[in-house]
Design a binder for these strands. Structure first.
Lengths: 139, 139
DNA sequence: GTGTTTGCAAAGTGTTTGCAATTTA
DNA sequence: TAAATTGCAAACACTTTGCAAACAC
């Protein structure tokens, strides 16, 4: 018996709808690039380049706007590992990252593969919004 | 019996010596600001402002250079939590951080207060250089 | 049609660099 | 005095913004 992945059409439209974002040409095209290819970590510049080379006419400003709108509506997660460059992760579930210092690339570590114990209480009046583990690797 | 902290002079000079850095006026002054006041998390801009208001004549470029030299020689640790701004931590021992999203401030979590278990192997050919835990808090 | 979204170019951050002048050893 | 360090101003990389034109509903 063989497993078959049925992908009748991009889920991009549904994602936009459920996020309450108008499915404009640019947003749809970017959503396809982002979500139709499994888990990804992209910078704005990268995504823009990729869009352009796929003949999607979209400005860099719109890519930035779109990435932030997607992040605000929970479709993406922003990751900061490197001063002066933001990455956006299409995997919004609970997980952590390897960061490859030489190449500047990221890769996912499934949430259950790392255990963080004894996380201290947030100080009075604050609540923990996320516990992020970054395993920096080199070599 | 009373414990007395004897601080005959700043340890800044010794720190520079042991790091093999020439103790210039600027480096000494910055080292005093950084290390004579316990654990600190500062940005370049912050440190420069502080220096200027303490009548230390030093340019922002030199502050950047100095922070990087200190980091390279192990006197400081660089922390990236916020896109587009680097912090430098005078505590170079094994520990983690709270990051206060609203104020942009950091505070230390002693190394032994968080346990990270089951850290996966670094991929073939890579070695782990650091495991960083950032507890983002909000509110 | 009306309100939203886009693209452009300009402006804004934070950081780095080139090089002459200054300082340190 | 020779080599290292500094300051300045310009250059940089990345990101955000203002606003008119284009678009979605």
């Amino acid at each position: 018996m063989t497993m078959v992945t049925v992908r009748p059409y991009s889920q991009a439209l549904d994602r936009l709808r459920s996020a309450g974002l108008r499915p404009t040409r640019q947003r749809l095209a970017l959503a396809r690039l982002l979500f139709d290819a499994g888990d990804r970590h992209v910078s704005a510049e990268q995504l823009h380049t990729e869009a352009v080379s796929n003949n999607i006419r979209v400005s860099l400003a719109t890519v930035y706007n779109t990435l932030h709108q997607f992040t605000d509506s929970g479709l993406l997660r922003e990751i900061v590992v490197d001063a002066g460059r933001s990455y956006f992760d299409t995997n919004t579930s609970d997980h952590h990252h390897f960061f490859f210092e030489r190449s500047g690339k990221l890769s996912d570590i499934p949430g259950e593969m790392i255990g963080v114990t004894k996380v201290p209480q947030a100080p009075e009046g604050f609540k923990i919004s996320r516990v992020e583990v970054i395993v920096r690797v080199d070599g």
